[in-house]
Design a protein around this nucleic acid. Structure first.
Lengths: 350, 350
DNA sequence: CTGAAAGCGCTTACAG
DNA sequence: CTGAAAGCGCTTACAG
């Protein structure tokens, strides 16, 4: 039945020069269900506005004919796409990949697709990518920058495109954000090292983006509260790599030979620091304790296993996407600022 | 000038109920350049068919008005999108992320976008995703499976969608593929271990997809040629993780206490194996040599640094994308099967 | 709750 | 090399 309906179409009565694609359209569904195309459109987009009886017949017809909506037509007609633009700092960092998995899982269920842009941790690049993507009329943005973007603020309300900020938290529930407190996480690491009895902890960081700086801020605060000098640190504005961790460790030992512990602001650096200690025969944690950030796969099974901050990066992606789609659908949102928290995994390295 | 042209449009003479979006269209450009919209369309898609003079005026008009093509309209009219569907085995594996970077870099330059699907290393899942994406009318596919997909083969030639297979090589230049010989890479590792004097090498693998099996095949061949028993191996059909590497190493030592070297079929496993040796106080490479695969960031700076196979994964992505787009544009292709080779990085661990 | 009409911005398929 | 006409498959903006 349905097969016949589909297959007869293109070959039936083609006017010369026809561009018929043979696809099942909303018009076919309408005919099959005995309603107008407009009602089919409503049944799909705003089912509440369609009588239950019509709705049932429409969905039955859709099933029978194997109708698949044409996104391009919808986008053209509505000037709004079903595509979300996602801007992450880096694609070579496992942290953001897991966030993308969360985003994908939510969006796939909601019928949206996404485009990925890489900002290289730079706010300027993010703003530039926003401009580029704006031409594709995305339904919304998922952003990584800690700051707001004028380009999105200045649009007239009618054409406003919603955005959610990931990883870091906004100041209020008015600007949508999903993440956790970078500052408190840094603070927690400092408290832990202090409680373990370390007296000369250092802060090691590369890729000095605003989130790193907030971890540092919290870390310094934790040390100061314990009466410890927070000035022991090495910051390099270079990309984060495992090898960089080794370099930072060498550097801090040169500058502060009495340093007894390091907080590496991510696990890649921590792994590099561990390798460097092994290379130099420095016992961990005996002579040097190491703490990382994120709990990447190797942290738990390194020798010694690495103390680190477990971050909810998958959930950040998933819930950011959810928050964005709820905005798009005009659903009520009770909290526009979701603090997903973090956990300190204490292991052998401290 | 251009600003005025753009801004006046929507407010000028709006018929009641107008849906004017205020966007600059091909029609505006045509008027500005003194040609028909059709000629503007041609200037953009097939510039060779447009007189140089017209072309110059058209591009000048585009610049002046700030025209941005509407993809949705183009897709609707042509029934072909500017989107490439990319199917990779996993998004949590750094290898495929770098491949995606290569794809993105090429496609961005060519004006295409891409959708990413995750196959979980399963051929069935890949076929299923192909079906799903087919509904979005992608311009082409970049696939990871070693095998062909009927669903793409059976389409009529007029609606055929081109595909390129990544990572592994096809049998001929007829089926497009970009990668390197997994078998020869495995063989190279075996030869290396044999030449170093190891007499009881083991093969360790998880995630037993076809590529792993080819590496194994080559590895076994290399050992057999040297008169060494290739039966020392542990294969587990579980996801690849660092921790799994530790498990595999424990296992091989139980089964074959005289094993003196291991070929881990990727670097995550190699890192886990190294950590396990450290935990057990087994010297590397003295008592146990370790070789990995892919040259991920930590391989070079581990202690000891890890011997591994350097694979061209960024280039695989970039050149696969290029091959696909060349097909789409109908450009001549001299080689449909690109062997990008590999390199053995010999380091301290062997 | 439902529908007829018009339009979104391109490209196809002709015809010169 | 160029253009007039029609159409791709939806949704908007009305009007009932």
């Amino acid at each position: 039945m349905s097969q016949r309906a589909v297959k007869n179409k293109p070959t039936a009565s083609l006017p010369k020069g026809s561009r018929a694609t043979g696809r099942v359209t909303i018009i076919d569904v309408a005919a099959e269900a005995g309603v107008s195309p407009m009602t089919v459109s409503r049944a799909l987009k705003t089912p509440a506005l369609v009588q239950e009886q019509s709705r049932a017949r429409i969905f039955a017809a859709i099933d029978r004919l194997g109708y698949v909506p044409n996104q391009a037509a919808a986008t053209l007609a509505s000037a709004r796409s079903q595509v979300v633009a996602v801007l992450v700092p880096s694609l070579t960092n496992a942290v953001f990949i897991e966030t993308l998995s969360g985003i994908r899982d939510y969006l796939a269920g909601a019928g949206y697709q996404f485009l990925i842009g890489e900002t290289g941790y730079a706010r300027d690049k993010e703003e530039q990518l926003i401009s580029t993507y704006l031409a594709h009329a995305p339904a919304g943005f998922l952003l990584s920058s800690s700051e707001q973007h004028e380009i999105l603020q200045t649009r007239p309300a009618s054409r406003a495109i919603p955005a959610v900020r990931m990883f870091d938290l906004g100041r209020s529930h008015a600007e949508f954000s999903v993440g956790f407190s970078q500052t408190r996480a840094g603070y927690a690491v400092a408290r832990h090292l202090v409680e373990r009895g370390y007296r000369r902890p250092a802060f090691l960081a590369a890729q000095l983006d605003p989130r790193m700086m907030k971890r540092r801020e919290g870390f310094r605060k934790g040390l100061q509260e314990a009466g410890i000098d927070p000035g022991v640190e090495v910051l390099l504005p270079l990309p984060t790599t495992v090898d960089m961790g080794a370099q930072l460790l060498r550097r801090v030992l040169e500058l502060h030979p009495d340093c007894d512990s390091v907080f590496c602001c991510n696990d890649d650096l921590a792994l590099g620091a561990l390798f460097e200690c092994q290379r130099q025969g420095i016992s961990v944690p005996g002579r040097m304790a190491i703490a990382g950030f994120n709990d990447l796969s190797w942290a738990a099974c390194a020798t010694p296993s690495i103390t680190t901050v477990v971050t909810p990066r998958y959930d950040i992606g998933y819930q950011s996407a959810e928050l964005l789609i709820r905005q798009l659908k005009g659903e009520p949102i009770d909290k526009g600022r979701l603090d997903l928290g973090f956990e300190l995994a204490v292991r052998e390295s401290t």
